[in-house]
Amino acid sequence: MHFYELLVELLLMPILAFVIGLAMVLMMRRIGARIQRRVGPPVLQPIYDIIKLYSKETQISHGLMHEIGIIMAVGGFIAAMTLLPVPGMSGLTDKGGAVTLAYMLMIPSLGMALGVGQCANPNGSIGISRALTAMLAYDIPFILVIFGASYVYGTTNLAEMVAIQQQQDVSSWGIVQMPLLALTALLILPATMGKHPFEIYVAPSEIATGPMVEMSGKFMGGLFVMQCFQLYTAGVIFTTLFLGGGVYWITFLPKIFLVVAIPMSVAYLFPRYRTEDVLRLMWKWPMLLGLIGLAVVMK
């Protein structure tokens, strides 16, 4: 079969994801700057940052697990990227569907958590404890959305979901089929990205950037790379589930950028919530909407 084609796809998908992710990081910073009436960073700023971090001359490590943690964080995302269908490439989407993806995405977080733990800095540990709490907060509505979409499309295979949505025009898109679930997903999107007002686990002024507290040089660089993948993943999942996914890059790219731009534009307007308020918020409105949405689609 097209084994070599598949290999090329598997190689290409993470690279593309990284490049698009870089652009998304730039967009995020630019949006933030514009909202604050600033000019914002130059176009290649995310690349400068990453090159600079990797080229630091002294790289301070707190031990083997610190290093493995960062490797797991980047490597896990590289692997997870092959489960996200993009125009022309479906990679391994038939080998593991949405549920697998959801759990694959926890591997990088686990890696980071272990690496941070090894740093022996309580700020980092508090950050991880908050990050896990936040995950508990947003994952429950998220899994509800995944269930609803899988139920409506009759499959957990993301590539098949795209195919189903492309059968007709916009009316077959997920967002028309299940608007309430789409709204739920949109509400939890900022939390999944860990941006304002849900950046409880970074909280620079409180716990000194939490997990990042002891990260220097290439360790920090790894986290920057991870952030690119994170934004990209959030955009693609939403687009695949609700916006008809990708058939052509020309339509796919605006969609994923739009998806990421929405929470970003809101993010810089709010201060940070407390941890328990994030839980309360996530378990109230998105859950409620999601359950109603589920009841509607399952009736």
Binding site: K52, A208, T209
Partner: peptide, 22 residues
């Protein structure tokens, strides 16, 4: 740092811990 002079356009960002800073 803020809107008047905006250091970020020069690629300068505030960081929190010594490990992250240049």
């Amino acid at each position: 740092m803020t809107s008047r002079f905006d250091m970020e356009r020069l690629g300068i960002q505030p960081m929190v811990t010594p490990r992250q800073a240049d």
